[in-house]
């Protein structure tokens, strides 16, 4: 359904050097020869830190951006040569809330964007009513978008993208900045789309979202694909382990490989892989270390992601 072959994108930026002097020209490689096949009906999550190349990839597939090299096909259509045809196949929800006209009502927005997909007024109105029901906004049809909460705007943006019944939906961080209730509301809509068999390509850096929604997950780092599989497969392959966190009364004699941390109340915590727990417990007992508490922590995608990318999320870095 979506095919990318050797897709690369290099942004050229020029640093500011003063009022009249041109600054140094820099090249930033956002994607480095990415190959990808997404099948019909798949719900694919694209996980990566800020600046990893997620949005760049989505925009290239959405025909908003031209790659520096490579080929992109959407439903068998060359996205670089025939962007208009491709746009009829896609519903696109870009990041942020400013993807709707705030002064227009929910219904007016849907009618406008339905019109842009060549729907007749009657078709657009019927579809809009159906979609407002789907995203739980049927009671807000005639309310201007500026009065909506962030979560309502995101749900309306998804409805907007679905107006022409596109076979493929592209979502860029659909829940960023939402509270847990808002996130759940958006997820509910996305789950129902997954059940209906809509092909979805969704960028996120929300681990919980990446773990719960996609049937297939791609981890992207510095413009390259690092991992591809179900969230469970990626977690298992990364070698991420279940951990036991022990709270101790005194400092133990343990391997350097184990993480010891001093807590606010003066006690110590020790993180131990579960498979090494019996040996460590035996050692602690032999050393006479008081064991105050044992907690088993399910290490999931979060740890797998850190292991794969080799560094924590850097939320200060912005994607071009």
């Amino acid at each position: 359904m979506i095919t990318c072959r050797g897709v690369a994108k290099t942004y050229v930026v020029r640093e500011r050097a003063g009022l009249f002097r041109r600054g140094v020209r820099r090249e930033i490689d956002a994607l480095r020869g990415l190959d990808l096949e997404i099948a019909r009906g798949a719900f694919v999550g694209l996980l990566g830190r800020n600046g990893a190349g997620k949005t760049t990839l989505l925009k290239i597939v959405a025909t908003l951006l031209l790659p520096t090299a490579g080929e992109v096909e959407v439903d068998g259509i060359d996205a670089l040569r025939e962007p208009t045809k491709v746009r009829r196949k896609l519903g696109v929800v870009l990041a942020g809330e400013r993807t709707l006209y705030w002064k227009l009502t929910a219904m007016e927005n849907l009618l406008l964007f339905g019109g842009l997909q060549d729907l007749s007024r009657r078709e657009a109105r019927a579809r809009a009513e159906e979609l407002l029901e789907l995203v739980g906004l049927s009671g807000f049809s005639d309310v201007s978008v500026e009065k909506f909460s962030s979560g309502m705007r995101r749900r309306l943006a998804i409805a907007r993208a679905l107006m022409h019944r596109p076979p493929i939906l592209i979502l860029d961080e659909p829940t960023t900045g939402l509270d847990p209730h808002g996130v759940e509301e958006v997820w509910e809509v996305l789950r129902s789309l997954r059940e209906q068999g809509t092909t979805v390509l969704m960028a996120t850096h929300n681990m919980l979202e990446a773990e719960r929604l996609p049937t297939r997950l791609l981890i992207i780092e510095e413009g390259k694909l690092l991992a591809d599989g179900t969230p469970q497969e990626i977690t298992a392959r990364s070698g991420a382990q279940r951990m036991a966190v022990l709270t101790l009364g005194s400092r133990p004699e343990v391997d350097e490989g184990l993480l010891v941390r001093e807590l606010d109340d003066g006690s110590l915590s020790l993180a131990v892989p579960v498979d090494r727990l019996p040996a460590v417990l035996g050692q602690l007992q032999a050393d006479g270390v008081h064991l105050a508490n044992v907690e088993i922590v399910e290490s999931g995608l979060w740890e797998a992601f850190l292991r794969l990318t080799g560094r924590p999320f850097d939320t200060n870095e912005e994607e071009p």
Binding site: L64, R87, Y101
Partner: peptide, 14 residues
């Protein structure tokens, strides 16, 4: 300024 240009151009219009 409104932030809708890219969304508009993700539709089949020029």
């Amino acid at each position: 300024e409104e932030g809708v240009v890219e969304t508009l151009l993700a539709h089949p219009i020029s």
